[in-house]
Design a protein around this nucleic acid. Structure first.
Length: 232
DNA sequence: GCGACAG
DNA sequence: ATCTTGTCGC
Protein backbone atom coordinates (compact mmCIF):
# COMPACT_ATOMS: atom_id res chain seq x y z
CA UNK A 1 0.00 0.00 0.00
CA UNK A 2 1.17 3.54 -0.69
CA UNK A 3 1.64 5.78 2.29
CA UNK A 4 4.16 8.38 3.30
CA UNK A 5 5.52 9.46 6.64
CA UNK A 6 5.12 13.21 7.23
CA UNK A 7 8.27 15.10 6.28
CA UNK A 8 8.34 16.93 9.58
CA UNK A 9 9.29 14.65 12.43
CA UNK A 10 9.47 15.90 16.03
CA UNK A 11 12.90 16.61 17.45
CA UNK A 12 11.74 16.49 21.05
CA UNK A 13 8.83 15.68 23.33
CA UNK A 14 7.28 19.14 23.13
CA UNK A 15 7.09 18.97 19.34
CA UNK A 16 5.68 15.46 19.52
CA UNK A 17 2.91 16.56 21.86
CA UNK A 18 2.11 19.47 19.57
CA UNK A 19 1.73 17.07 16.66
CA UNK A 20 -0.61 14.85 18.65
CA UNK A 21 -2.72 17.86 19.58
CA UNK A 22 -2.87 18.94 15.97
CA UNK A 23 -3.79 15.51 14.57
CA UNK A 24 -6.21 14.48 17.32
CA UNK A 25 -9.26 16.17 15.72
CA UNK A 26 -8.68 14.16 12.56
CA UNK A 27 -9.36 10.81 14.24
CA UNK A 28 -12.87 9.41 13.84
CA UNK A 29 -14.09 7.43 16.84
CA UNK A 30 -17.72 7.03 15.79
CA UNK A 31 -17.20 4.62 12.93
CA UNK A 32 -19.09 2.52 12.30
CA UNK A 33 -16.11 0.96 10.61
CA UNK A 34 -15.98 -2.30 8.67
CA UNK A 35 -18.84 -4.56 9.76
CA UNK A 36 -17.49 -7.57 7.89
CA UNK A 37 -13.84 -6.91 6.99
CA UNK A 38 -12.18 -9.38 4.64
CA UNK A 39 -8.61 -8.60 5.65
CA UNK A 40 -7.28 -7.95 9.16
CA UNK A 41 -3.80 -6.63 9.77
CA UNK A 42 -1.70 -7.02 12.88
CA UNK A 43 1.36 -4.88 13.61
CA UNK A 44 4.16 -5.13 16.13
CA UNK A 45 7.74 -3.99 16.69
CA UNK A 46 10.63 -5.80 18.39
CA UNK A 47 13.58 -3.91 19.88
CA UNK A 48 17.23 -4.53 20.55
CA UNK A 49 18.36 -1.89 22.99
CA UNK A 50 17.50 -0.09 26.19
CA UNK A 51 14.68 2.10 24.96
CA UNK A 52 17.04 4.83 23.78
CA UNK A 53 17.44 6.59 20.45
CA UNK A 54 19.87 4.19 18.82
CA UNK A 55 17.93 0.98 19.35
CA UNK A 56 17.52 -1.36 16.42
CA UNK A 57 13.84 -1.86 15.60
CA UNK A 58 12.16 -4.57 13.56
CA UNK A 59 8.57 -3.97 12.50
CA UNK A 60 6.22 -6.66 11.25
CA UNK A 61 2.83 -6.54 9.58
CA UNK A 62 0.71 -9.60 8.98
CA UNK A 63 -2.44 -9.58 6.87
CA UNK A 64 -4.93 -12.28 7.75
CA UNK A 65 -8.06 -13.60 6.13
CA UNK A 66 -10.66 -12.34 8.60
CA UNK A 67 -12.73 -15.49 8.33
CA UNK A 68 -10.05 -18.19 8.62
CA UNK A 69 -7.32 -16.11 10.31
CA UNK A 70 -4.87 -17.62 7.85
CA UNK A 71 -1.91 -15.50 6.70
CA UNK A 72 -2.51 -13.77 3.37
CA UNK A 73 0.61 -11.64 3.32
CA UNK A 74 3.32 -10.42 5.64
CA UNK A 75 6.06 -7.81 5.57
CA UNK A 76 8.90 -6.59 7.77
CA UNK A 77 11.22 -3.59 7.99
CA UNK A 78 14.29 -2.90 10.10
CA UNK A 79 15.62 0.47 11.18
CA UNK A 80 17.07 2.63 13.93
CA UNK A 81 14.88 4.36 16.50
CA UNK A 82 14.19 8.00 15.71
CA UNK A 83 12.77 8.68 19.13
CA UNK A 84 13.34 7.32 22.66
CA UNK A 85 10.60 5.44 24.46
CA UNK A 86 8.47 7.97 26.30
CA UNK A 87 5.10 6.89 27.72
CA UNK A 88 2.49 8.79 25.77
CA UNK A 89 4.80 9.38 22.80
CA UNK A 90 5.17 5.77 21.93
CA UNK A 91 3.97 6.24 18.34
CA UNK A 92 6.91 8.44 17.39
CA UNK A 93 9.20 5.55 18.15
CA UNK A 94 7.36 2.85 16.23
CA UNK A 95 5.59 4.64 13.38
CA UNK A 96 8.55 5.20 11.01
CA UNK A 97 9.54 1.56 10.78
CA UNK A 98 5.90 0.40 10.81
CA UNK A 99 5.16 2.66 7.85
CA UNK A 100 8.15 1.18 6.03
CA UNK A 101 6.78 -2.31 6.52
CA UNK A 102 3.31 -1.21 5.38
CA UNK A 103 4.73 0.28 2.19
CA UNK A 104 5.82 -3.09 0.91
CA UNK A 105 2.36 -4.56 1.43
CA UNK A 106 0.46 -5.48 -1.73
CA UNK A 107 -2.89 -5.91 0.01
CA UNK A 108 -4.66 -3.06 1.76
CA UNK A 109 -6.18 -4.35 5.00
CA UNK A 110 -9.76 -3.39 5.92
CA UNK A 111 -8.77 -2.82 9.52
CA UNK A 112 -5.50 -2.78 11.44
CA UNK A 113 -5.16 -3.96 15.03
CA UNK A 114 -2.29 -2.25 16.81
CA UNK A 115 -0.24 -3.49 19.74
CA UNK A 116 -0.93 -0.57 22.08
CA UNK A 117 -3.60 2.02 22.84
CA UNK A 118 -5.77 4.13 20.61
CA UNK A 119 -8.11 6.61 22.31
CA UNK A 120 -7.18 5.30 25.77
CA UNK A 121 -4.27 7.72 25.92
CA UNK A 122 -3.57 10.75 28.12
CA UNK A 123 -4.15 13.06 25.14
CA UNK A 124 -6.61 10.69 23.45
CA UNK A 125 -4.20 10.02 20.60
CA UNK A 126 -2.36 6.74 21.00
CA UNK A 127 -0.50 4.78 18.34
CA UNK A 128 -3.67 3.32 16.80
CA UNK A 129 -5.15 6.80 16.29
CA UNK A 130 -1.94 8.11 14.79
CA UNK A 131 -1.55 5.21 12.40
CA UNK A 132 -5.20 5.48 11.39
CA UNK A 133 -4.94 9.18 10.63
CA UNK A 134 -1.74 8.72 8.61
CA UNK A 135 -3.10 5.85 6.55
CA UNK A 136 -6.77 6.73 6.43
CA UNK A 137 -7.58 3.13 7.30
CA UNK A 138 -9.72 1.88 10.20
CA UNK A 139 -7.59 1.04 13.23
CA UNK A 140 -8.06 -0.12 16.80
CA UNK A 141 -5.69 -0.48 19.71
CA UNK A 142 -5.45 -3.78 21.55
CA UNK A 143 -3.09 -3.37 24.49
CA UNK A 144 -1.84 -6.00 26.92
CA UNK A 145 -1.83 -3.60 29.87
CA UNK A 146 -3.90 -0.51 30.62
CA UNK A 147 -2.32 2.91 30.29
CA UNK A 148 -4.70 5.78 30.86
CA UNK A 149 -7.90 5.04 32.71
CA UNK A 150 -9.15 2.26 34.90
CA UNK A 151 -12.09 -0.08 35.27
CA UNK A 152 -14.07 -1.82 37.97
CA UNK A 153 -12.81 -5.44 38.16
CA UNK A 154 -16.09 -6.44 39.80
CA UNK A 155 -17.94 -5.24 36.70
CA UNK A 156 -15.93 -7.50 34.42
CA UNK A 157 -17.43 -10.96 33.95
CA UNK A 158 -15.13 -13.97 33.99
CA UNK A 159 -16.17 -15.45 30.67
CA UNK A 160 -14.93 -14.82 27.13
CA UNK A 161 -16.70 -11.80 25.70
CA UNK A 162 -17.22 -10.09 29.05
CA UNK A 163 -16.16 -6.47 29.21
CA UNK A 164 -16.01 -3.41 31.44
CA UNK A 165 -15.65 0.23 30.47
CA UNK A 166 -12.24 1.82 30.78
CA UNK A 167 -12.83 5.33 32.06
CA UNK A 168 -10.53 8.26 32.60
CA UNK A 169 -11.70 11.43 34.22
CA UNK A 170 -15.33 10.42 33.84
CA UNK A 171 -14.88 9.77 30.13
CA UNK A 172 -15.14 6.34 28.56
CA UNK A 173 -11.86 5.81 26.74
CA UNK A 174 -11.98 2.12 25.94
CA UNK A 175 -12.93 -1.28 27.25
CA UNK A 176 -11.31 -4.11 29.19
CA UNK A 177 -12.29 -7.15 27.15
CA UNK A 178 -12.01 -10.79 28.21
CA UNK A 179 -11.03 -12.81 25.15
CA UNK A 180 -10.85 -16.20 26.92
CA UNK A 181 -12.61 -17.64 29.97
CA UNK A 182 -10.79 -16.79 33.16
CA UNK A 183 -7.90 -15.04 31.43
CA UNK A 184 -6.66 -11.50 31.98
CA UNK A 185 -8.47 -9.03 29.74
CA UNK A 186 -6.98 -7.03 26.88
CA UNK A 187 -7.58 -3.29 26.62
CA UNK A 188 -9.36 -2.19 23.49
CA UNK A 189 -9.80 1.36 22.29
CA UNK A 190 -10.71 3.00 19.01
CA UNK A 191 -7.99 4.24 16.70
CA UNK A 192 -9.65 5.73 13.63
CA UNK A 193 -12.74 5.19 11.49
CA UNK A 194 -14.22 2.65 13.86
CA UNK A 195 -16.45 2.53 16.93
CA UNK A 196 -15.67 0.75 20.18
CA UNK A 197 -18.30 -1.97 19.75
CA UNK A 198 -16.92 -2.89 16.35
CA UNK A 199 -13.34 -2.78 17.63
CA UNK A 200 -14.23 -5.18 20.44
CA UNK A 201 -16.20 -7.47 18.16
CA UNK A 202 -13.31 -7.75 15.72
CA UNK A 203 -10.80 -8.26 18.53
CA UNK A 204 -12.89 -11.09 19.92
CA UNK A 205 -13.25 -12.68 16.49
CA UNK A 206 -9.49 -12.51 15.98
CA UNK A 207 -8.84 -14.22 19.34
CA UNK A 208 -10.65 -17.58 19.14
CA UNK A 209 -8.11 -19.58 21.12
CA UNK A 210 -5.68 -17.34 22.96
CA UNK A 211 -5.76 -14.19 25.05
CA UNK A 212 -4.17 -12.06 22.33
CA UNK A 213 -5.67 -11.81 18.86
CA UNK A 214 -3.96 -13.89 16.18
CA UNK A 215 -2.97 -10.66 14.43
CA UNK A 216 -0.90 -9.62 17.43
CA UNK A 217 0.53 -13.08 18.05
CA UNK A 218 1.76 -13.54 14.50
CA UNK A 219 3.07 -9.99 14.15
CA UNK A 220 4.91 -10.39 17.44
CA UNK A 221 6.59 -13.58 16.32
CA UNK A 222 7.44 -12.18 12.89
CA UNK A 223 8.99 -9.01 14.35
CA UNK A 224 11.19 -11.04 16.68
CA UNK A 225 12.32 -13.25 13.84
CA UNK A 226 13.12 -10.20 11.73
CA UNK A 227 15.10 -8.66 14.57
CA UNK A 228 17.03 -11.86 15.12
CA UNK A 229 17.81 -12.08 11.42
CA UNK A 230 19.02 -8.47 11.41
CA UNK A 231 21.10 -8.89 14.54
CA UNK A 232 22.51 -12.33 14.05
C1' DG B 1 5.87 16.91 45.97
C1' DC B 2 5.43 11.76 44.76
C1' DG B 3 4.47 7.90 42.04
C1' DA B 4 2.93 5.85 37.79
C1' DC B 5 3.92 5.25 33.07
C1' DA B 6 1.25 1.52 26.02
C1' DG B 7 6.01 -0.96 24.14
C1' DA C 1 10.30 -3.97 24.93
C1' DT C 2 14.01 -7.27 27.01
C1' DC C 3 16.69 -10.27 30.48
C1' DT C 4 15.13 -15.83 31.74
C1' DT C 5 14.38 -21.65 35.16
C1' DG C 6 11.60 -23.85 37.11
C1' DT C 7 7.07 -24.66 38.21
C1' DC C 8 1.89 -24.75 39.18
C1' DG C 9 -2.12 -26.49 36.86
C1' DC C 10 -5.39 -28.44 33.35
Amino acid sequence: MRIQLPHAWPADAAEAVAIQDRLRPLADHTGPGPAAPALLAGLDVAYAGDGGTDDLLAAAVVVLDARTLEVVEQATAVGRATFPYVPGLFAFRELPVLIEALKSLEHTPDVMLCDGQGFAHPRRFGLACHLGVLTGLPTAGVAKTPFTGGYDPAALGTRRGASADLTDGGERVGRALRTQDGVKPVYVSTGHAIDLDTACRLTLAAAPAYRLPQTTRLADRLSRDALKAATG
